Amino acid sequence: MTADTGIGTIPVDLGAGVRAFFTTASGGVSPEPWARPGGSGLNLGLNVSDDAGRVRRNRALVGALLGGLPLAFATQVHSARAIPLGPEEHARWRTDTAPDTAGEGDALVTAERGLGLGVLVADCVPVLLADPGAGVVGVAHAGRKGTAAGVVLRALGSMAERGARPDRTRAVVGPAVCGRCYEVPEELRDEVAAVVPGAFAETAWGTPSLDLPAAVGAQLSGAGVDVTRVERCTLEDEEFFSHRRATARGTTTGRQAGIVALV
């Protein structure tokens, strides 16, 4: 928990000159259902019916944790598209009319120092990437479709185009719904596992499931990347927003984020 703002964060180490962390549901200015019961919420998603002004305020609070750096997000569509952000985009985000989105895609990559990248999730897998030596960072949103399509590998490819090397790249796989909880039909599990074998799993009660954090970690390790995993399940842990938990309760929820920047 960040004491001066009330914002919940999980700092992670991606090397010298890189600031990286995951947010939780705590802090911010959003009310329920985009908050934990009885508190305010740090909802960072613009597509979950929360007031856009509140979401922008929450994003500004997160940017303040980066020393006031501009913070870019994509409109995530469960694709494998990686969006590179260069000097022109950096200049746009430094204005008072910074855009809400970098466009449709599920990974962002930049070699621009002083531009934060964010990835939004509420059960899907947030991935933070950095090659500190090359000065390149990236984020990826790996849901079921994106994991099968190789979105994290596409992000690595975009980073390589900017000088990064997989053997120097560090990755953190963030909080997401775990394989013990992510129940799916057997046919769907088999379909995904045929492409990404590491996704094959069973729930704690013995039914078919997908372990997307494990699958993403295996993809990254297979590419030569040094991988760390935050072992927290968003469905089980009410410190986090969870789409599955909210749906079961007949309501909506917010979006937390993974954040990375060259500082």
Rank of each mutant, 00 (worst) to 15 (best):
L69W: 12
P31K: 06
G143Y: 02
G133T: 13
G67F: 13
G105K: 01
V121I: 11
E89S: 03
G105R: 01
V48Y: 12
V137F: 12
D96L: 12
V139K: 01
T75F: 13
E88Q: 08
R81A: 14
A107H: 02
A60L: 10
G103V: 00
A130G: 11
A52I: 00
R59T: 10
A130I: 08
G118R: 00
T110D: 10
G116I: 01
G114D: 08
G41Q: 07
G138M: 04
R81G: 04
A80T: 04
A60C: 02
A82F: 04
G38L: 14
E32Y: 14
V77G: 01
A142H: 10
D123C: 02
V119M: 00
T97D: 15
A98P: 08
P37G: 02
V127S: 08
A80Y: 07
F73A: 06
L44G: 00
H141A: 12
V139M: 03
N47C: 00
D106G: 10
P84I: 03
D51M: 02
N47R: 11
P87S: 12
T75K: 07
N43S: 15
G105L: 01
V29Y: 08
D50R: 03
L61H: 13
G28V: 00
S30V: 06
A82T: 04
D131V: 09
G53N: 14
D131M: 12
G27L: 04
A122F: 00
